[in-house]
Write a protein that binds this DNA or RNA. Structure first.
Length: 854
RNA sequence: GGGCGCGUAGCUCAGUGGGAGAGCUCUCGGUUUACACCCGAGCGGUCGCAGGUUCGAAUCCUGCCGCGCCCA
């Protein structure tokens, strides 16, 4: 019954432009900053889960009369795409090569064992664009199938020209405002990808190593007693610039201010005090090298130590021995490790220490947390390089205030943002030594000897953006001056993916390009996203909005949880437990998969559960069946009213459901809304419908019949609309049976007058009527079930005992009960009991059997 | 080490001061004219543990245990 609906209606919505954004005043718009999924590979159930949540909210707001601004983007910029393109086409980016406008697309797949084809950066980027365009088509098909009510005419990509222009414009403005700057500084460096990485992209991993106890030779007051330090990185010994202990450490007081000499390399270094030294760790005194970790950087900066860098960008020991390594024996030792990887250098230095007798005992194995780039597979090194930064530390206090102003769903997620902002220990590094990204939009003049003048960058005019400095020529220069003395050099770097995606509100809302649209949509209403990217996407978006427009980018943020496999582990490709979305949509229907997704509350990790999808499918089918049944009765006569107490009672209970569902959806608690609606819907089907069915079949002239038919249709209309955000396909199908327009732009039931139907004047509707009728029919069913009889089996008498005030109430439902339960006689006896009690006597079995015998 | 969240029936989860609940599973029953992709009934819990507040605690407070995540 459900099968086939998905495609039919998805196509229809596209034809009719059902979800097209229609401009309106800001107050009438609900704008959503949809996360652009990374386009490298395929969507998985986690995407389906969280995007459904947002769509439910979008559909609710649309029915509430809002003009919903709901674009989709694709994040195709960045490393994952680069890697894929290299393998797919067998190419390698060589930025020094010139652009070939007519370069043929390489054959796919590339010949086995062939050397990668070197292509210019622009040609490489074009290949990236070609491949991502194909993936984006496939993604869009899945989203349409799932029923996301996105306006597809507004789709953007983070590498597209528009996004590049916005990204570069914002960067240029920050540059002019002094909020973006470049600096030569120690930078976390991934030797595998050969790029700098930002603080936000780090993760700690357990890494095996060994403590080496090494003797430094004392020169001063301590006499010739060696000073022992313990380190896991002996290969950095030639980069040592000081020994450092805690200022309160009694063991080293006598050494502070003196110097010691490094073993093997023979460099004299000071012994200094600094509170970051940990007395409990190793020997309590550490060697500070440039640079082994971030503490070294801190010491180097705060104690104004010299730099003795020995690790290059390729992760190998550089040829040039550092300053200060002057002795002949020291230089000879250094030659032993030049060009070696960190791993090999470590072995050789340890061998030399062993030979000189400065290694005390044997290394002892340890496992400790080491910083990695989240996408990398080798520990990060720290190398000195020129990079671009955006100021963020200066804005810490303001950013914390912004976090307070933002409404978080769930609210406890705010703490993660605050943790991150408070812990910022440097500005945001935005330049990356990669290719498929938005270029840093500056050039540098070259002086007479051909060296770049970094502190006088040539910045393009805003109306010239976007630019690619590696192929475009800066104003005032000619192309042949590129690289020539007195000419220019393009900045070879691109910006970090987050430097562009932090501007999604500006990209979609037409910042500086479409003033009207911007006024209608910005600041946005909602940012939905995963809680794992609070420190990256959420943080950086708040920062950019702060810097560009001194505003919050949105008023509310919803954080979705993870999908867990049935063993409560996070689902991931490497575990091989990922299920493809399309298969699920085909097997269970889109509505069913959405129903499962809706069971995951904001911020809550949710188990992948096909059982839930089956139930969703059941609900959608039930809605179609119940709709068919209700609409099968003749339309109520004009002027008909809901006169029966039971009908009015049912509508009153429904009113309450509308109020609860509406309140829940307004605060993004879609799960609660669905739960309340669903519970009522099944009671409506199982109890109310069964109770009034006979009356609804009655004579057109009977007002009680008219009352039932009208109440049924009124309730059905409300229920179809309440379920529409969750089950857009089944509700649309059932709605189409009796309406011309789409349910998805029909008005959400108003909590004030939810069913829009006049009930007869007089007593207020009594919730208790439905409750008593339901309890009575349940008692009858139980009696039949206990006796193992059919539900059709006649009941001789139903006797109800209880408070006298229920007498009239019972009278009002006697007719419906009699028919629904096949009851011969219903009696009421007032008692002192507080509650009603039901006594059911079934007709004798023989009475039923006897006709068969005659 | 600091912080956040979670712990309720076999499973998935609601319930935040006053009757311990739902769905699924399981068992039993039902050719009911919307639906067998259905309907009805039933079985099933020491609400993680310990203490405290209260007339009353799954719910509030304290401590502990377990799981997950964030930050260092």
């Amino acid at each position: 019954m459900l099968d086939g609906l998905d495609q039919v209606w998805a196509q229809r919505w596209e034809q009719d432009g059902t979800y097209r954004f229609r401009p309106a005043e800001r107050a009438d718009v609900f704008s959503i900053d949809t996360p652009p999924p990374t386009v490298s590979g395929s969507l998985h159930v986690g995407h389906v889960f969280s995007y459904t949540h947002t769509d439910i909210v979008a559909r609710f707001q649309r029915m509430r009369g809002k003009h919903v601004f709901y674009p989709m983007g694709w994040d195709d910029n960045g490393l994952p795409t680069e890697r894929r393109v290299q393998n797919y086409f067998g190419v390698r980016c060589e930025p020094a090569l010139p652009y070939l406008p007519d370069m043929p697309v390489p054959e796919v797949p590339p010949a086995k064992g062939a050397k990668p084809l070197d292509v210019s950066r622009r040609n490489f980027v074009e290949l990236c664009e070609k491949l991502t365009a194909e993936d984006e088509q496939a993604f869009e098909q899945v989203w349409r199938r799932l029923g996301l009510s996105v306006d597809w005419s507004m789709t953007y990509t983070t590498i597209g020209e528009h996004a590049q222009r916005v990204s570069q414009r914002a960067f240029v403005r920050l540059l002019h405002a002094g909020q973006a700057y470049q600096a030569e500084a120690p930078t976390l460096w991934d030797v595998g990808f050969r790029t700098a990485v930002a603080q936000a992209e780090l993760e700690d991993r357990e890494h095996a190593g060994a403590w080496h106890r090494i003797a430094f030779h004392a020169d001063g007051p301590a006499g010739d007693t060696p000073v022992y330090i313990e380190t896991t990185r002996p290969e950095l010994l030639p980069a040592c610039v000081a020994l450092i202990a805690h200022p309160d450490d009694a063991r080293y007081q006598h050494l502070f201010g003196s110097t010691v000499t490094t073993p093997v390399f023979g460099v004299e270094v000071p012994v200094l005090a600094h509170p970051a030294a940990e007395p409990d760790r190793g020997a309590g005194i550490a060697m500070c090298c440039t640079f082994g970790d971030l503490t070294d950087v801190q010491w180097w900066r705060e104690l104004k130590l010299p730099a003795r860098a020995i690790i290059g960008r390729d992760g190998r020991i550089v040829a040039q021995a550092p300053d200060g390594l002057d002795s002949e024996s020291g230089r000879a030792a250094y030659q032993q490790i030049v060009g070696a990887t960190v791993f090999t250098a470590k072995e050789r230095v340890v061998a030399m220490l062993r030979e000189s007798g400065d290694l005390d005992g044997e290394p002892s194995k340890t496992v400790r947390p080491v910083k990695f780039y989240e996408k990398g597979d080798k520990p990060l090194e720290i190398v000195s390089s020129r990079q671009w930064f955006i100021r963020s530390v200066d804005h810490q206090d303001r950013l914390l205030e912004r976090g307070q102003q933002l409404n978080w769903h769930p609210s406890y997620m705010r703490a993660r943002y605050e943790d991150w902002v408070r812990g910022l220990n440097g500005d945001w590094l935005v330049s990356r030594q990669r290719y498929f990204g938005v270029p840093v939009p500056v050039w540098y003049p070259l002086d007479a000897s051909g060296d770049p003048v970094y502190d006088r960058p040539i910045v393009p005019a805003e109306d010239a953006l976007p630019v690619d400095p590696s192929s475009d020529t800066p104003p005032g220069y000619t192309a042949d001056q590129r690289g020539a003395p007195g000419g220019f050099l393009g900045d070879p770097d691109v910006m970090d993916t987050w430097a562009t995606s932090s501007l999604t509100p500006q990209i979609v809302c037409g910042w500086e390009e479409d003033k009207e649209l911007f006024n209608e949509t910005y600041p946005m209403d909602l940012r939905p996203q995963g809680h794992d990217i609070i420190r990256t996407w959420l943080f950086s978006t708040v920062l950019r909005a702060q810097l560009e427009t001194d505003s919050l980018p949105w008023t509310d943020v919803t954080l979705s949880g993870w999908i867990l496999d049935p063993d409560r582990k996070k689902m991931s490709k490497s575990k091989g437990n990922v299920v493809t979305p399309v298969g699920l949509l085909e097997e269970f229907s889109s509505d069913a998969v959405r129903y499962w997704a809706a069971s995951g509350r904001p911020g809550t990790d949710t188990a992948f559960d096909q059982g839930k999808m089956k139930i969703g499918r059941r609900l959608a089918t039930k809605l179609l069946n119940a709709s068919k049944f209700v609409l099968g009765f003749p339309e109520p006569a004009p002027g008909a009213g809901v006169t029966e107490a039971l009908d009015r009672s049912m509508l009153a209970v429904l009113d309450d459901v509308v109020a609860q569902a509406t309140a829940a959806l307004q605060t993004f608690e879609y799960t609660t809304a669905l739960e309340r609606t669903e519970r009522f819907f099944w009671q409506f089907c199982d109890d109310y419908l069964e109770l009034v069915k006979d009356r609804a079949y009655g004579d057109d002239s009977d007002p009680a019949t008219q009352s039932a038919r009208l109440a049924l249709r009124s309730a059905l209309s409300v229920l179809q609309r309440l379920l529409a955000p969750f089950l857009p396909f089944a509700t649309e199908e059932a709605w189409s049976w009796w309406h011309d327009g789409t349910v998805h732009t029909s008005p959400w039931p108003d909590p004030a007058t939810p069913h829009g139907t006049a009930t007869s004047a007089g007593d207020p509707a009594d919730d208790m009527v439905l409750a008593v009728a339901t309890a009575a029919i349940a008692a009858v069913r139980k009696a039949k079930s206990d006796a193992k009889r059919s539900m059709k089996h006649p009941v001789q008498v139903l006797r109800v005992h209880g408070p006298a005030r229920f007498g009239p109430l019972l009278d009002s439902i006697t007719r419906d009960l009699t028919r629904a339960g096949n009851i011969s006689e219903i009696g009421f006896e007032p008692t002192d009991a507080a509650q009603l009690d039901y006594d059911v006597r079934l007709a004798a079995a023989e009475a039923l059997d006897s006709p068969a015998r005659t």
